[in-house]
Design a protein around this nucleic acid. Structure first.
Lengths: 227, 227
DNA sequence: CGTCGACTTGAGTTAACTCAAATCATGTGG
DNA sequence: CCACATGATTTGAGTTAACTCAAGTCGACG
């Protein structure tokens, strides 16, 4: 597929006139990152923003001792690194390709110029940032006010919703990564899954998890999460 | 001061032509909330956004058991509740006046219409949301990867920077609220302050905290925080 | 002076952590 | 096709930071 079509397919740019898409195609940088490659680091200067075309990218923070907290996992069509364009000089977190990924990079000035010309793009961008703020608020809520079982239950319910309410879930990430996403470590996650299984809430076999007691999980997620 | 001047003084609206300020003045709702009054709750529909004119407002989440996590404390000139305008139907958290506060309310449609007309406003708004995302990322980092002493140290250093590097700090909030801001409880905060005092890092007398060992605090904040 | 809220301190409990080791799946080179 | 290296996951044992509950202190204000 041509660069122009790939850009036009990015939800952020939906509805843009052809001319401006062409402009974007002129200035885009097309890159491929291998699995595990760092796209940018926390201290790097943010000279532009990125969009995932294929593959997956994780945005994460690292503690002093090396423990990681995943903030986002982005897939095709999703932009990342935009806050550096609008707010500051450096990126607030690290970005790494979780698998071989094709990434488009757009320099800062062109995005700002484009937004000035295109109100609908500004509103798209505002909507995206607002949704992320909302997700962050939920994550803070979870980290601060819920225990790990509650977070896991909430996550499983979220996955279930994504799949139209299916109770047959396939993890797209490893359990270690899930642990990092939930703000815990693999050992703890493993133990809690074992407990949930013992209580008949779920069945877990490798990356496949089946929800047995949807209501039970809901109670767990809402009540802060004591198993 | 007139409504028009008050609106023109809001940083978000800086640089707007007089005509549009007048438009805003026509549609603004001017409200006063007493200390402790709820401005909106998590489940409320977000039909617009707010700006603090005088006083202070806290944005917070509540756990099932009633523990609170403060997400923001906003003062004069700062907007809040905007994410509901761009992203969703309901507010993602609760808002309460921490003291008697004068609050302006702007309905959703007028803000969106204004942004369509005014690219610089869009960029202002994007910058504000980006800065908040950044702050949230830092908070998530703290909650997930640092222990309470590290968070407290980081907060004290932040306060010191706000006051041009002064080591004489005056808390603008109660220690209980500080605990909630740091994602802990008053008892824990009290104990940690006592420990820090015992180690000669700070002196704490009521709402007044003096930093004795700036470097020590920096080490504590950066290293995750073991006292 | 008494009450109320804010703060501190003590004692006991626990969720989640660290460290260590065993198990399992996968894939590669011989 | 097998043996071993690699990474993911699980399980066990011990430790700890931070929590809950309870009690007491302190200061401001009516």
């Amino acid at each position: 597929m041509s660069i122009v079509h790939l850009i036009a397919d990015i939800p952020l740019f939906h509805g843009l006139p052809k001319e401006q898409i062409d402009d974007l195609a002129m200035i885009v940088t097309d890159q491929v990152f291998k699995k595990g490659e760092i796209i940018f680091s926390e201290s790097d200067e943010g000279t532009g923003f990125y969009v995932v075309i294929t593959g997956r990218v994780k945005i994460f923070k690292l503690s002093f001792e090396g423990k990681e907290q995943i903030l986002h996992i982005f897939g095709p069509g999703e932009p990342f690194g935009e806050t550096a364009v609008f707010a500051g000089e450096h990126f607030p977190a690290n970005a790494e390709a979780m698998e071989e990924s094709r990434i488009f990079f757009f320099p800062r000035e062109s995005l700002i110029a484009l937004i000035k010309k295109t109100p609908s793009l500004a509103l798209n961008m505002l909507a995206i940032l607002s949704r992320r703020l909302r997700r962050f608020a939920a994550l803070i809520d979870d980290l601060s006010l819920k225990e790990v079982p509650g977070r896991l239950a909430a996550y499983l319910l979220y996955l279930s919703e994504q799949h139209k309410g299916s109770t047959d879930l396939q993890l797209a990430i490893t359990k270690g990564q899930l642990a990092s996403l939930l703000g815990t470590i693999p050992e703890t996650l493993s133990r809690i899954l074992a407990k949930m299984t013992a209580q008949g809430l779920v069945v877990s076999e490798g990356p496949h998890i089946r929800i047995l007691d949807l209501e039970g999980l809901q109670v767990l997620a809402e009540s802060g999460g004591h198993l």
